[in-house]
């Protein structure tokens, strides 16, 4: 993956994405722009799962726990502070701390991977139920009423850093959300080429071997999990900024399941793929929602089954594989008979 050619492809991709983010408001009406803003916010959540599952080997069925926590923390803090700047920061820090506590018990208690899925799922359900039953005057933090199943309406949206009197316009909000998505993507890429990232992948590949080489695998997994929690929390803040509302359904199981579908479609072990998966699936769901013939859950289920059966690697890795094969074929026709001169062949796969 550290291949130079691969890096070239990466930078082109990021540059194209950045240009796209910058120019999109010129080409879309307000409604469409709001929709892609939502997709980008959800893609940050997708990235958090893509990272911990695809590269850390940790399958969390309850990443929405951190996403929802981030959303609620942002809402409560923004209402109390009247300024979004520190609220965003808290929406990253508190979910990360929660992930540290939860991850500590799971990884240092040597609980197996299957149970991790069950535990994260359960934590999500607990959070849903707790938040759902906070209706009434008694449940308030500062001046923010939790509102139970009604959620918290009219949450202040993002404003210029430390200038609560200047709220962001929908266009600026899109730039912030899309920009954050690209920044998180780049951050994860950097982490993956660092020692920590490479060791995390090694732990995914073979935890026993990593431990026998002297790496504290519990700490590595905890690090991956906390990073995932922080990113999911940030996604939650972006989501609440989009809708100016947060309710207990943010912890919903259907969202947790949908993330798995985004990643299966986009490709496990890829960061770009899950973003594509997230955009395409959400766009599809929105499209289906505007008509009555098909039920969206039915279509989602069919897509999941179809991908698992026909394209189990997902879109992005399959695309790269095809690219590598084409290149190999091209090379063997142009450099016929000099197979020894290609020591790097196959590195891309």
């Amino acid at each position: 993956m550290t291949d130079a050619r691969h890096a070239g492809l990466q930078s082109i991709l990021v540059l194209a994405a950045a240009t796209g983010v910058a120019l999109l408001p010129l080409h879309l009406d307000l409604f469409a722009l709001m929709q892609v803003t939502l997709f980008a916010a959800m893609s940050v959540l997708a990235l958090s799962v893509a990272f911990i599952w695809g590269f850390g080997g940790i399958l969390s069925f309850g990443q929405t726990a951190f996403f929802g926590l981030g959303g609620y923390v942002y809402a409560i803090a923004a209402i109390n502070f009247g300024d979004s700047t520190n609220a965003i920061l808290l929406a990253v820090v508190l979910p990360a701390l929660f992930a540290t506590a939860l991850g500590y018990f799971v990884f240092y208690g040597k609980i197996s991977d299957v149970y991790l899925g069950v535990i994260t799922l359960t934590v999500t359900l607990i959070l849903f139920n707790v938040v759902n039953s906070t209706a009434g005057e008694a449940y308030r933090i500062g001046i923010a009423r939790l509102g139970g199943f009604n959620g918290i309406p009219s949450v202040p949206t993002f404003n210029m850093p430390f200038h609560p009197e200047i709220p962001l316009s929908p266009e600026t909000s899109w730039w912030v959300t899309g920009g954050t998505l690209i920044a998180v993507y780049l951050l994860l890429r950097l982490i993956l080429v660092s020692r920590f990232g490479r060791v995390a992948v090694a732990v995914r590949e073979n935890e026993t071997r990593a431990a026998l080489l002297g790496y504290d695998t519990r700490l590595v997994k905890l690090g991956v999990f906390v990073l995932g929690g922080a990113i999911a929390g940030l996604g939650g803040a972006l989501y609440v900024n989009w809708g100016a509302f947060v309710g207990p359904t943010i912890f919903s199981l259907s969202l947790s399941a949908e993330i798995i579908i985004w990643i299966t479609v986009g490709g496990l072990g890829s960061l770009f793929g899950p973003i594509v998966g997230c955009f395409v699936i959400q766009w599809l769901v929105a499209l289906i929602g505007s008509q009555q013939t098909f039920n969206s859950n039915l279509v989602l289920g069919a897509i999941l089954v179809g991908f698992v059966l026909l394209l189990p690697k997902g879109v992005a890795p399959t695309f790269l594989l095809c690219l590598a094969r084409l290149r190999k074929r091209y090379r063997s026709t142009t450099e016929h008979g000099s197979a020894q001169s290609t020591p790097h062949a196959g590195q891309l796969t």
């Binding site: 020692r195 490479r198 060791v199 992948v201 090694a202 590949e205 073979n206 026993t208 071997r209 990593a210 026998l212 080489l213 002297g214 790496y215 590195q347």
Partner: peptide, 18 residues
Amino acid sequence: NVFNGLSVRENIWLSARR
């Protein structure tokens, strides 16, 4: 006990880099 999905070089590097 090796890292099956990684290259030979990466396997050895992971050990050397500690």
